[in-house]
């Protein structure tokens, strides 16, 4: 008989997905309009995060106002491109494909000894370059697709995945993105496949991270709320899992901030001189 283990205290992550979807659609619309944009551009990887972002953007702006980009490299899994097409079709958004192989290989050929990991990061940054250029071409603002779990783990390529100025999913754990994906009608094969950055052949997120997302997310939520380790272990998580999650968060704070600036004045930007990013004056 099949034994299914529940995830302890997973209900702390429960959301009302119609309410969340409605709020995120409004967020996309208002943040774009506030910046003078009517259209958005989304790089669609074939994974669940970009699928959800595309669905929200299509609902918020109308599919005709969303540009979906598929940005494969020759080493990318063919399934990723197939799933990108499937998602674009499902949400009625036209998909443009730009092959980044030449961009990446142009650099890699001049760089003997480049490792798969470094090349993966170059791929992610090449995708960022294309996305921002398409933003200029279509006058469409790039939408980020990074979720809260990968942001907290620093599990993304710095100045690539995190670069779009508007990110609807950044405060949703991966578990919650899956829930939202089901509500929005993201195809099952995308929701239920093992998450992967697809930067190296055979790569999966959970193998890289060393912990299952559904368990990590509950640990993260309790850790961020200040519960001590012993409490989290008491819920049914192992000390090793808790330590791993905390280590990943605490080794990557720099990736969630602007660069450190040497402060020599009492008007240092974002230290003394504090203004929210949407600040204006009448002048």
């Amino acid at each position: 008989m099949k034994v299914v283990h529940g995830v302890p205290n997973h209900e702390v992550l429960d959301l009302d997905y119609p309410l969340v979807a409605s709020a995120l659609e409004r967020f996309i619309r208002e943040e774009l309009h506030g910046r003078g944009f009517e259209k958005g551009v989304v790089a669609v990887s074939g994974g669940v995060d970009s699928a959800v972002t595309l669905a929200l953007a299509a609902r918020a702006l109308g599919p005709e106002n969303v540009h979906a980009l598929s940005l494969p490299h020759r080493d990318s899994s063919p399934e990723s491109s197939a799933h990108a097409r499937l998602v674009a079709k499902r949400f009625g958004v036209e998909l443009e494909t730009v092959d980044i192989t030449h961009m990446v290989e142009g650099y890699a050929e001049q760089t003997p000894g480049i490792t798969p990991r470094r090349k993966g990061n170059v791929m992610a940054r090449a995708r960022m370059i294309v996305t921002f250029d398409k933003s200029e071409q279509y006058r469409a603002l790039p939408l980020g697709t990074g979720n809260k779990t990968e942001r907290l783990f620093g599990y993304f390529t710095w100045h690539a995945d995190d670069s779009p100025p508007v990110n609807p999913l950044g405060d949703l754990y991966k578990t919650q993105v899956w829930g939202l994906a089901e509500y929005l009608g993201v195809p099952d094969e995308i929701v239920h496949k093992p998450p992967t950055a697809d930067l190296e052949p055979g790569q999966t997120d959970e193998a890289d991270l060393g912990v299952r997302y559904r368990r990590a997310d509950v640990i993260l939520e309790h850790y961020l709320k200040g519960y001590p380790d012993a409490y989290i272990v008491g819920l049914g998580y192992t000390p090793e899992e808790v330590a791993l999650v905390k280590r990943r968060v605490n080794q990557t704070h720099y990736k969630r901030h602007l660069p450190a600036v040497a402060i020599v004045s009492s008007t240092a930007i974002n230290e003394f001189y504090l203004r929210p990013l949407d600040f204006h004056t009448d002048d």
Binding site: L274, R275, F279, T281
Partner: peptide
């Protein structure tokens, strides 16, 4: 002005 102004409250 909107709610979140941080130090901008001094200007507005």
């Amino acid at each position: 002005t909107g709610y979140f102004l941080q130090g901008g409250v001094r200007e507005l």
